[in-house]
Amino acid sequence: MNIFRFAGDMMHLLSVVVLLLKIHKMKSCAGISLKTQELYALVFICRYLDIFTGFISLYNTIMKIVFLASAFSILWYMRSHKVVRQTYDKDQDTFRHYFLILACMVLALLVHHKFTFREVMWTFSIYLEAVAILPQLVMLQRTRNIDNLTGNYVFFLGTYRGLYMLNWVYRYLTEVHYHHRWLTWISGFIQTALYADFFYYYVKSWRNNEKLQLPA
C-alpha cells in the first residue's frame, strides 16, 4: 500500500471520527444531511459485499467493518437518538436522493466492466459515492453558521478521494498487473471536483481566520 492510499484512508477515517465526535459529544447533528449519510451506508453495503468472502488483508477487513459500523451508528443517532434526532434540520435536507440512487443503478447496469451481480453492485457503489455528497453540499449552502466540526468533516471527506486519485496514478506507474478501471478514475475525478467550490471557501475562511460560510 502506498502513502497516497494510506493517507486517503486516514482522511476518510478522520472524517467519520470528526462526525461521530460532533454527534456523540455535542449531541448534535445540526447541518448534517441524513440523506447523504443514507447514501454512504448504501455505498458501503454494496461495495463491501465481499467482506466475509474475499479476504485481502486484516487492514482492509477492519476498515470495512469500521466504515459499515460507523455509517449505521450515524444513521441510528440521527434517526433514533432522542436528543440528537431533534437537532436534525429536516426542512433544509430536501435533496431528492432517490433519484441519485436510481440514476446510478441504471448507469451501473449500462456501464460496467463485467456483468455479474457483484461487479454491477460494486460499480453502482462507485457511481453513488461520487454524488453522495450532493445533499450535504446543498444543505451547507443553506446553513448560515457552519460549525468547525461540520466544515472539517466535509473537508476531510473531499480530500480522501483526491488522495485516492494520486494513489491510482502511482499504482498505474508502478504496478505491472494493476487493474485500472477507467470508470473509477472518472467517478473519482467527478467526486473530487464536486468539492472544488467548497474547498475554495474552506481555505479562504481558514486563511482569513473567519467563520466558514458558503455563498447562497
Partner: peptide, 10 residues
C-alpha cells in the same frame, strides 16, 4: 479471471 478479486481498495 481475477478481475473481481482486484477490488483491493476501500
Amino acid at each position: 479471471d481475477d478481475d473481481e478479486d482486484s477490488h483491493d481498495e476501500l
